[in-house]
Structure formats: C-alpha cells, structure tokens
C-alpha cells in the first residue's frame, strides 16, 4: 500500500518531522465584514509528518484558522504559505486550480451534514479526484486505496452516509480528504461526535497516515484528551489570539499560560490531583484593569496593571511560546 510512488519521497516514517515547515502562518489576521478581528497576530508552523493540535473554546477562532488556510475565510493581514506557495496571494484561476489540485484538504466537522446524503461511499471518496480531472479508471483504484488506508470495508462502497455508523462516516470523510494525496490535512473536530473506542480508532488513523503519507496534520478540537493522545505540538487559542504553543506534553502538564492551565485542570478524569489549583484558576483577579489589552485578563487570576499592554508570544524554551506578562512566574501561586 504505497501512495508515494508518483511524488517526491515522503519524509522518513520515524515520527521526526522534517525541519522546514510545510505550513507557515505569519501575522495572520481575519475579520468578517467590518467587525472585530476573529484572529489576530497568529504565527504558527506545521511540519510534514507532524500533528499540530489546535485547542480553544467556542468562538476562539480555531475553525476560522483552518478555514483561512484553505481559503474559506477572509484573510485581512499576514501570510499563509503551504509548501513554499503563498496561499493568501492566490486569486481567481490560480486559486481555483490550487483548490482542485487538492494538496490542502479540509475535513469538515460533521460528516453527517457535510457528506452528500444521496451519494454512495465510492462517489463520495472519488469526487475530489473527479474535480481534479483524474480519469475514471485511476479514480476507482485510488478510491480503493483510500478505503483500505482508512480501514473501511469494501462492502461499504455502495452505501450512503445514512447507512453508516458514526465512526464509519468519519472514516469516509477522512478517506475523501486523503484521496487527492494532500500534503496538508486540516481536520476540524474529527472525533468530537464519536465514542471513546471509535475516537481512538480515528486518531490512530491520523497518526498512521501522517507517517505513511508524510502529511502535515492540523487537528482542531475542544477536547484536550483527544489532542493529548495524538498531537506532537499544541497551540492554544483564546479570543482570536495564540496564547501558548509548544510540545503537547509540556503544554498540557506544565502550561505557561493561565488559560492553558485552566483548560488542563478542567478536563474530566479519574486523577483528582490534576484539579489542584482549579479553584484558583477560575477566580479572576480583582486587580485586572478594565482596559486590559490581554484577551484573557478579564478571567485571569494573575492579571494586574501590566496586562494593559498586549502580551506578545515570547519564546519560552525550545519550540515554545507563551503570550503572558507573568509567565512563568504565575505558576508559583499554583503550588501554594
């Protein structure tokens, strides 16, 4: 099962991503209409073979981030380059061609609503290839390959989405996303509707596919534990700002931004020790200035007059940034 025969060799499947980022986002700002920025000042990289997790609450801009990368959200400032090509500079015909080529794929949140209910699985998966102008015989073969890669039974080929289980539907959506042999896959809440076993199944698939296909994968989720299991790095968004990013385990176990800490302490689980500090993290500081520029100040237990100035993402160790004036000093309050 090789999908790499007709394009440059995939990076070694060792889990060690190659150095040059496949996706490079710099200074990204998005606003709809004349409204406020939905995203502002986002710098983010994803390398081939790497899974980048993006987490944040509803309205934090995580879906907009993914949509901006595929050209479905209005980019007002900044650049998004994929594999060296500036996607934000593409217009008209060039944009349409880039979309049809399918090097960047977006997996929608809800497969039951995003998959055409009248199309059988074979057509759902083959459609992006038809759009790209791939001849029917090649298409049929690649549909089967994508089906096998995602662990779907060939007996499902003639079923419509309504006759599939939730896990199967999600895998059809994934097969449809990888059939064009993309370099970059953006998966928006790929597992939020699934129960634990199916969720792990899909996460394992993503994990395998990024190795086998040398894919850069951006997984968007509001569920910390889904990301914990699969992401190499995690980016935390709050109200359109990137408040922290870094290696997954470091961000989750030793967060440098108070919001990341609140997220990590809130995740339900058997281990009650993680909830230490939760009461403190939930209590906004009385010293938070009303005119704070920091997006989290109104909820932050550690906010003070310094937070009038917008904190910029500062490097904190290797491959890690946090946008907080009080990082990492605020962590001392947790242990008290």
């Amino acid at each position: 099962m090789t999908l790499t025969t007709d394009r440059p060799a995939a990076p070694p499947a060792t889990g060690r991503p190659t150095e040059e980022p496949l996706l490079r986002i710099r200074g990204l700002g998005v606003s709809y209409g004349t409204g406020a920025r939905v995203l502002d000042g986002i710098d983010l990289d994803a390398r081939a073979g790497e899974i980048l997790g993006v987490i944040g609450e509803t309205g934090s801009g995580k879906t907009t981030l993914a949509r901006a990368v595929v050209g479905l959200a209005p980019v007002t400032t900044g650049r998004i380059t994929v594999d060296g090509t500036d996607r934000t500079a593409l217009r008209g015909r060039a944009l349409r061609e880039a979309r049809r080529a399918g090097a960047v794929q977006y997996m929608f949140q809800d497969p039951l609503r995003s998959l055409d209910p009248d199309l059988a699985v074979r057509h759902l998966i083959g459609e992006p290839l038809a759009v790209a102008g791939i001849p029917a015989d090649v298409r049929a073969e690649r549909v089967l390959t994508a089906l096998d890669l995602t662990g779907l039974d060939r007996a499902l080929l003639d079923r419509t989405p309504g006759r599939l289980s939730g896990g199967q539907r999600q895998r059809v959506a994934l097969a449809r996303a990888i059939v064009t042999r993309p370099r970059l896959l953006l998966a928006d809440e790929p597992v939020s509707a699934l129960d634990a076993s199916n969720r792990n199944h899909v996460l394992r698939l993503l994990d395998r596919l990024r190795h086998e296909l040398g894919l850069a994968v951006v997984v968007i989720s509001h569920d910390l534990d889904s990301l914990a299991g699969v992401a190499d790095r995690i980016a935390v968004l709050y109200r359109g700002r990137l408040v922290e990013q870094g290696p997954a385990e470091a961000v989750l176990t030793r967060p440098l931004h108070p919001y990341s800490a609140l997220l990590a302490a809130s995740a339900p689980g058997l281990d009650r020790t993680r909830r230490a500090g939760l009461a403190l993290l939930r209590t906004p500081s009385p010293a938070a200035p009303a005119d704070a520029a920091c997006v989290f100040a109104h909820r932050c237990p550690f906010a003070d007059a310094d937070c009038r100035e917008l904190p910029q993402p500062q490097p904190r160790g290797a491959d890690r940034t946090a946008a907080c004036h009080h990082a990492p000093a605020w962590r001392e309050h947790l242990s008290r």
């Binding site: 995740a267 689980g269 058997l270 993680r274």
Partner: peptide, 14 residues
C-alpha cells in the same frame, strides 16, 4: 479507551 486524564496514553481501541 477512555480519556481518563492521563496524558500521552496509547490510543487503545475495543
């Protein structure tokens, strides 16, 4: 298979 709060667990399936 449950996400019971342990970080970096294996992704077991049933």
């Amino acid at each position: 298979v449950a996400a019971t709060g342990d970080r970096r667990r294996g992704l077991a399936v049933i």
